[in-house]
């Protein structure tokens, strides 16, 4: 749906495909696509802030990973992993000293679409 060069690493593009608004994100050369609707109250999810993941730890400790890979809904700020669409609503139930590399699935999931790069063109399968 777009030339890969139009979406540089760290960038995004919101497009309409088959009547659906979809955001395509480039994280370090890999592409991911999410439906542009937040499962909470329907906000335009893909317009949200790209941020990192703050790991649960001890009070006063702010361990910060995966910068640019977490999408925060522009309305209420809910956090979604761009790679999987999973929300971080139910953080890990594991104990404080182990923190997940993958986010534990919360009950809310943003719709994702497979993305392929064919030559220099990004293709989203809707």
């Amino acid at each position: 749906m777009a030339a890969a060069a139009e979406i540089p690493p760290g960038g995004r593009r919101i497009v309409t495909l088959e009547g659906r608004s979809i955001g395509v994100f480039n994280i370090g050369g890999e592409f991911f696509a999410l439906r542009n609707v937040c499962p909470h109250q329907g906000g335009p999810l893909c317009q949200g802030v790209l941020s990192g993941f703050v790991v649960p730890g001890t009070p006063g400790e702010y361990r910060y990973l995966r910068r640019g890979e977490i999408l925060r809904c522009p309305w209420h700020g809910w956090e979604f992993d761009i790679r999987t669409g999973q929300s971080y609503l139910d953080p890990a139930r594991t104990r404080v000293h182990t923190y997940p590399v993958e986010l534990v699935a919360g009950p809310y999931v943003a719709e994702t679409y497979p993305v392929m790069v064919e030559g220099d063109v990004v293709v989203v399968q809707v």
Binding site: S51, V54, V55, P56, G57, T58, P59, E61, Y62, R63, H76, G77, W78, E79, Y88, L89, P91, A92, R93, V96
Partner: peptide, 13 residues
């Protein structure tokens, strides 16, 4: 908390 969790990341439940 669901929206502002990041300010108090130690609150994990």
């Amino acid at each position: 908390w669901k929206g502002i969790r990041r300010e108090v990341p130690w609150v994990e439940r």
